[in-house]
């Protein structure tokens, strides 16, 4: 007989899904960090550990058959929460042909067209106007057929991005054209090594929505249910009225900005303070209290997530490198065969 108990109005199946998704991201990032240390992964690698409740809470409020997700360079968590195959994700980190972007994107450029995950963007804030464009297409199609937007678009970015002109220009456009765009600022409090307070004239990011006559809301980014519920409200409004929204999720990243960050700008105590409010532990504790999670189930989820990450790493390790002629494919739509353009040929000869 199905468990009738709920937590915050959510049933066990749904809650287990959230927990499982957060565990999988955490385990994936731990494995990615480990493999980076072993030099299996190169370049910039920004881990999402600590912020899982934001991606999982928001994306669980979407219908990815019609909704879209865009994010910045700290994109592993969002991609996995969208349902990207962890093997394809890990293979991408390894630069392998079976990677989600055929080994051409790497950590910062995860894409999955089938899951409506539109990247993975390495320029701070640049994904925000692009996301507004995706929302524009949803509104456009709706308007041409005299109906509502065909879906909503969520754009994730960090506290460092909110001061970019791209954010403000895109938010204004979303306001005047009534775009179903949900902007989620993941305030992890450190823009690389700069405290968000040092560079923010207004410490209430959600208030910036007021500048564009849009809905703004601040939410505890360590509480996946609070994030989810806020996202549900924003998505509903976006789809019904084409009303853009700004959600500020106060969160924290456990790891450095990237793998090369010595983290001299913050104390160990600060990190420990936030680890005590870990999004996974928080949900587990509340589910246990509500009698919705047994010790066995808890351990099984953790073990399963670790096994999936392990399997992803093994897959990535065993996968072939991209063929040499892949260098020249995917530059233009009409030049997909790997043949070189005349100019390229003449430069190489």
């Amino acid at each position: 007989m199905a468990d009738k108990k709920t937590l915050g109005g959510h049933d066990k199946k749904f809650l287990m899904g959230l927990l499982e998704s957060m565990h999988r991201i955490r385990a994936f990032e731990e494995k990615a960090g480990q493999m980076y240390g072993l030099r299996k992964i190169g370049g910039f690698c920004h881990l999402y550990s600590g912020q899982e409740a934001v991606a999982v809470g928001v994306i669980s409020a979407l219908d990815l058959s019609t909704d879209y997700v865009l994010t910045g360079y700290r994109d592993h968590g969002h991609a996995l929460a969208c349902g990207m195959d962890p093997k394809a994700a890990m293979a991408e980190l390894y630069g392998k042909a079976a990677g989600c972007s055929k080994g051409k994107g790497g950590s910062m450029h995860f894409f999955d067209a089938g899951k409506h995950m539109l990247g993975g963007n390495g320029i701070v804030g640049a994904q925000i106007p692009v996301a507004a464009g995706v929302a524009f297409a949803q509104a456009y199609r709706g308007r041409l057929s005299g109906s509502q937007p065909t879906g909503a678009t969520v754009c994730f970015f960090g506290d460092g991005a909110i001061h970019q002109g791209a954010f403000h220009e895109a938010f204004n456009l979303a306001g005047i054209w009534k775009l179903p765009l949900i902007l989620v600022v993941e305030n992890n409090q450190w823009g690389m090594g700069t405290s968000w307070k040092k560079v923010s004239s207004n410490e209430d990011f959600s208030a910036m929505a007021g500048a564009y006559a849009a809905h703004g809301e601040a939410v505890d980014g360590m509480d996946v249910l609070a994030v989810h519920d806020a996202a549900v409200r924003a998505v509903k409004r976006a789809k019904a009225a084409g009303e853009p929204a700004l959600l500020e999720a106060r969160t924290y990243r456990y790891k450095g900005h990237s793998m090369s960050d010595p983290q001299k700008y913050r104390t160990r105590e600060e990190v420990e303070t936030y680890r005590a409010r870990d999004p996974i532990l928080l949900l587990e504790g509340r589910m246990e209290e509500a009698g919705l999670l047994s010790a066995r189930e808890k351990e099984a989820l953790r073990a399963e997530a670790e096994a999936i990450a392990e399997e992803a790493a093994a897959f990535a390790e065993a996968s072939p490198e991209p063929a040499a002629d892949e260098l020249y494919t995917d530059v233009y739509a009409d030049r997909e065969s790997g043949e070189t353009a005349p100019s390229e040929a003449s430069w190489q000869s």
Binding site: P129, A132, G133
Partner: peptide, 24 residues
């Protein structure tokens, strides 16, 4: 569509609309 004077914003919006299947 008349745009505000925000070249970065509306150019980027065009890029996203194109990714989602329009031809701006």
């Amino acid at each position: 569509l008349d745009t505000p004077i925000t070249e970065l914003g509306f150019t980027g919006l065009g890029v996203g609309a194109a990714m989602a299947g329009l031809r701006p």
